[in-house]
Write a protein that binds this DNA or RNA. Structure first.
Lengths: 247, 247
DNA sequence: TGTGTCAATATGTATAGACATAAGAGAAAG
DNA sequence: CTTTCTCTTATGTCTATACATATTGACACA
């Protein structure tokens, strides 16, 4: 399970245009520590002299650095290296089918339960204050070969996605169905570890108390809740990877 | 533990400049689904007419959309809405002290063990192929009140950070020490769930088999491995949050 | 039919200039 | 000494223009 052999340091690439060269140069000064947090970056005017270019070119580079959060720009004062930023990592969320494929195992999917119902108080806990009136609740199992890879507990707002009542979800998982049907504007993920209890433990066919990686995803489209999904990955066979990428 | 009351849908904000208005308009068309993947966005020239502005203004908006991955630009052909992107979420990695503070509990820290040594084969598994020769290995405990909140297992490359030998780490955790001393260019996080075993279970004072959330972080500076950290969060009291943010 | 050439076109990058805006510094007024 | 005003300055945005570059379609040629 501890397949840590896929570790590789990243590589730099050559800049192609002037503004990218300026951008790389400055970012280099920052990430190398030569320009510590609080350091005042040369004024745009000074950089135009240094690189012998127009202010717009310098501005393009500095603007990108600014809205990627590496520097802060203050009128009249100049541009400054930002405090060591709360390190942000990008978590790439893929379809479960892709995860299984990546393991080289055959993927299969079954629907365990499906129920249309009115929403209850407990649902508002999961979907937020603007909880829809009607819901579709499902439990699904994703297999990697013979192995139960993930148990999915899913709520779909029938207010936001009325078409879902016409879909059986017998052969197609709700995730890929939704992603091609409903545009989404925001998603939030909560990740934690939990001991498996029924019905999760029975569904996954693991002993009670088996540690599970839980990923809960809430999705909104234009401020309206669309869906809630809880993915239960049993044991230690699954790990999420998040990479920091400057810019 | 399931403190799900901190759920709120996001809000839109008003554009301040023309290019931001263009950017928001187009992004709106895309995330609302009105312009599906593959749709050809109006040419820059058409947009300059529509918004009555110069091409540079349109270009600034489209460029940002392009390098945030929402659209793809092809010379001579135009700009196209990209395929439903691999959903990416941003994981905000904070100092453990901040996490404890956020819970409203008093933070304290102790160093359990500290050892300078030559690197072994097993270390290359963790730090990658360019494993350093000399290492500093530590085990630390982070408390939230009386509760063991997190057990940290830490390796620091003494090749990359020779200064670390002079630091006792008795009162300051390696994380904040490193972050203000060593600039880093890349970080990778692996997140999984695991049953606690000795020495982790004994260090955290929890029963063997207690599910733990494991966050492993590898950090490089200029392609050289700097540090490896494994954070063991026992039980279900901790959860990571990752938010999708368009742009 | 296949291929090479060429012009048309949309984007990529850069320029010089313009005005707006905010924020700091210093002067003037209370 | 404090408040208020003006002036200066660096950034924020926008324009009109220019040339480079990649790609496509059309046309001519073997």
């Amino acid at each position: 399970m501890n397949d840590s052999s896929i570790i590789d340091a990243p590589e730099a690439e050559e800049p192609t245009s002037l503004y990218q060269r300026i951008l790389n140069d400055i970012r280099g000064q920052i990430v190398s520590g030569a320009w510590p947090p609080g350091y005042r970056i040369p004024f745009e005017h000074e950089l135009t002299v240094q690189y012998d270019c127009s202010r717009m070119t310098v501005n393009k580079a500095l603007s990108q650095l600014a809205n990627s959060g590496l520097i802060e720009r203050r009128r009249r004062s100049g541009s400054f290296v930002r405090a060591p930023r709360g390190q942000a990592a990008v978590l790439e969320i893929t379809d479960i089918r892709n995860e299984v494929d990546a393991l080289g195992l055959p993927y299969s999917y079954t629907l365990s339960s499906r129920q249309e119902r009115r929403s209850r108080l407990a649902d508002a806990q999961l979907l937020g204050p603007q909880c829809p009136k009607k819901l579709l609740e499902m439990t699904c199992l994703h297999y990697a070969g013979q192995l139960a890879f993930c148990l999915e507990q899913r709520l779909i707002s029938l207010d936001a996605v009325p078409d879902a009542v016409d879909e059986s979800f017998q052969d197609l998982a709700p995730g890929p169905w939704l992603i091609r049907r409903v545009p989404w504007s925001t998603a939030e993920h909560r990740i934690r570890s939990e001991a498996a209890k029924p019905p999760v433990s029975t569904g996954l066919n693991v002993a009670d108390g088996t540690p599970c990686l839980i990923v809960e995803r809430r999705t909104w489209s234009a401020d309206e809740p669309v869906t809630f999904a809880r993915f239960n990955y049993p044991g230690e066979l699954h790990s999420l990877v998040a990479r920091f990428k400057p810019d």
